[in-house]
Design a binder for these strands. Structure first.
Lengths: 338, 338
DNA sequence: CTGAAAGCGCTAACAA
DNA sequence: TTGTTAGCGCTTTCAG
C-alpha cells in the first residue's frame, strides 16, 4: 500500500497548521471560527490529495472508537441475521460501526471474542450470552465495561438487557394448541440451563395445568444441542408411538421446528390432520412446508434497535440500568387446524 | 469506564522500563534476552493489574490492524452466513479479526462501507461486489488497497478473486433437466447486469442448444430484485400457462427457488409429477419442501478460506495476482423425477 | 540485560 | 483567525 496522506501533509502543502486542517476535517470551522477561504482551500487540498482520516489515530487520542462489539450465538440462526441487521442499521444511524463475532454456543469462544473486542477498545458490547457465561458477564460488570444482553439473560445477574417474556410467549402458544382442540401436546426443547429456554418450559407446563391437562413426561423431549438431528428424530418417533399418541407438538425454537418438520415430512405425518404443529420463532423455511406454520414471533427489529440505543446511553452515561422485556407476536397459520 | 492500566503503569509499579514490559507482553523475552526473573515479575504484575494491551495504540505504531474488512451483499443470504463463518474461522486461525458490513445490494451503501472500513485501517478487504460497483473496485486498485472479490466479479477488471464457474454450473443443471426427460425448461433469473448471473444465463442457453432444444422466450423469466415476490409469482403462472406449458423450472439462485417453491406450493403444482424443479445453490428451507430439491452447490467453505489466504498473501506481498475459479457440486434430489 | 526516547496521526488546550 | 505543542499507549532503535 502506498504511503497514506496525513493531516500534516495537507498542512504542509498549504503552509497552514495541522490544527486548522483538523478543525475543517471535523466540520468545526464554525465553532472554531475558521476563515471561509482557508476552509475552502483545505477541503480542496484534502480532496485532491485523497486524504483519509486515520480513525486509529483519532481513537487513540479521543479514547472513543465509535465501534460496537457484537457477539452472537450462531450466525446461522434467523434471530442472528435479523438482529444483526437491525443493530447494524441503528448503529450506522448513530455513526457507529459494528464488529461482529459468533461464539457458536461455545463459552470458550465467547470469552475469547469478548477479549478481542475489548482489546480493540470497542465502546461497548451487545451480547447474546451462552451457557455458563455468567463469569464473563460478571467480569464485564466488575470492570465497568458497558454492555447489553439480548435474547438471553441470567435471572441472578442485574445486567442491562433487552429480551422477550419467554414464559408468557410459551404460555400463549400452548394455550393456542389447547384452544384448537389438542390435549396431548408434546414439547420439544433443548436440554439446557439457559434461563430463557427454561422459561418456555415453565410457560408450557403452566398452560397445561391451567387447562386441567395432566403433563405427561413422555411428551416432553429434551434435545441435546450436540445431537440435534438424532434427538429430534427419536423424539418425534417417541411421541407418535405413545398411547395415546401426541396430537400436537410445540417446538421451543425455530431450529427445532425445522428439524422436526423435516422428520414429520419424512414420516409422512399429515399436518394438521394427524398432528398439530406450533413453533416459537419463525423461519423462512416454513414457507415451503405443505401448510402455513402457526408460530410465535420475536420483535427482532425492536430488540436490535433498543439494544443499540440502550448501549449508547450507557456509553454516554454509565448510570443507566434497563431491563427491557418486550411482548412477542403470534402468527396464526393452519398447522394447528385453526 | 475506569481508567485502564497501561504499559507504563506496570513499568512504574515494578520500577522497570516500558520497553521491557513490551518485550515480555509480546513474548519476545527470548530474542531480546530478558532476564527470566524480570519476565516473571512482569507477567505477574500484568495479571494482577489486569493489564490489557491497547490494540489501537499498537496498530497506530505498527501500521497493522490485523483486521479484515468484509462487505457482503445481504446478510440474509445463505451464501453470506456460510462464507462469513468460513472467513471468520480462517481469519481467526491467522490471528485476524473480521469487521463486517452488508451493502444490501446498494452501490451507495457499498461505497460508504468501503470508506468506513478503509478509514479504520483494515489490512485488506474481502468483497461481494454489487451492481455498478466497478468504479469503487477501480478506486481500490488505483490506491493499492489489498482486496479480494468473492462470488461475483467483473470480466473487464483484472482483480484478485475467488468464485465458481457459473457458466459451467448452469450448463450442468440444465443438462440434468434434459437428461431427466424435460424439454420445456423454464429459467428464472434476476434481471441484472451482474456478470456471474449472466453467465448462468449463458450456460442455460448453451445447454439447450447443445441438446437441440429451441429456446422459447416465454420460458425465460426476468425477475426484478425490487419486485421479487411479484415477478416470481407472475413468472410461474406465465410458464404454466404457455402452450406447451413448462415441464420444469431452473431457478438461478436459492432465493428465487424459495419464492418459486412457495408459489408452486400455493398453486398446488405437483413436483416432480407436473413440474420438475432445479435450483442453483441450496437452502435449508428446501428440507421442508414436499420433495428433496435437486440443486447445485457452491463450495462456500473453500471460497471463504481461499479468500482469506489470498488476501493475507496479498497483504504480505502485494504482487500476488490470483483468479481462483472453483467447481461447484451437484446434489441429486427427487425434484426432477430422478 | 535494561532504559531513554522518538514517533505513529491525530486532537485540543493554549498562546499569539 | 491561526500556530505550537503535549500527549493518547505502544514499539523499537540506540546507548549503556
Amino acid at each position: 500500500m502506498k504511503r497514506k496522506v496525513a493531516l500534516k501533509d495537507i498542512a504542509k502543502e498549504l503552509g497552514v497548521s495541522t490544527a486548522l486542517v483538523s478543525y475543517v476535517m471535523n466540520n468545526q470551522e464554525e465553532e472554531k471560527g475558521v476563515n471561509k477561504e482557508s476552509a475552502l482551500k483545505i477541503r480542496e487540498a484534502a480532496a485532491r490529495l485523497n486524504y483519509r482520516p486515520n480513525q486509529i489515530a483519532k481513537s487513540l487520542k479521543t479514547n472513543k472508537t465509535h465501534t460496537i462489539g457484537l457477539i452472537v450465538a450462531d450466525i446461522a440462526y434467523r434471530f442472528t441475521t435479523g438482529v444483526t441487521r437491525a443493530i447494524e442499521a441503528e448503529a450506522k444511524k448513530n455513526n457507529y460501526t459494528v464488529i461482529f463475532g459468533s461464539s457458536d454456543e461455545s463459552n470458550k469462544k465467547f470469552h475469547e471474542l469478548a477479549n478481542v473486542l475489548i482489546n480493540r477498545q470497542v465502546d461497548g458490547l451487545i451480547l447474546v450470552p451462552v451457557e455458563n457465561s455468567e463469569q464473563e458477564i460478571e467480569y464485564l460488570q466488575k470492570h465497568d465495561i458497558p454492555f447489553v444482553l439480548i435474547d438471553r439473560y441470567f435471572p441472578g445477574l442485574d445486567a442491562n438487557m433487552v429480551a422477550i417474556d419467554n414464559y408468557k410467549a410459551a404460555y400463549q402458544c400452548t394455550a393456542h394448541l389447547v384452544k384448537t382442540g389438542h390435549r396431548n401436546i408434546a414439547f420439544v426443547n433443548y436440554k439446557t440451563t439457559l434461563f430463557h429456554l427454561q422459561e418456555r418450559n415453565r410457560g408450557y407446563r403452566q398452560a397445561l395445568q391451567d387447562n386441567g391437562i395432566e403433563p405427561q413426561p413422555g411428551l416432553v423431549i429434551d434435545v441435546r444441542e450436540k445431537h440435534l438431528e438424532e434427538d429430534v428424530r427419536k423424539g418425534i418417533k417417541q411421541v407418535m408411538a405413545l398411547n395415546p399418541a401426541a396430537d400436537s407438538v410445540f417446538f421451543a425454537t425455530d431450529i427445532l421446528a425445522i428439524h422436526g418438520l423435516k422428520n414429520i415430512n419424512a414420516m409422512k405425518i399429515k399436518v394438521p390432520g394427524e398432528l398439530g404443529v406450533l413453533s416459537f420463532d419463525e423461519s423462512e423455511a416454513f414457507e415451503l412446508f405443505s401448510c402455513p406454520v402457526t408460530h410465535g414471533r420475536q420483535p427482532i427489529e425492536d430488540i436490535g434497535k433498543l439494544a443499540v440505543t440502550t448501549l449508547l446511553d450507557l456509553v454516554a452515561n454509565n448510570k443507566v440500568k434497563r431491563r427491557i422485556v418486550l411482548e412477542s407476536d403470534f402468527i396464526k397459520g393452519k398447522s394447528c387446524g385453526e
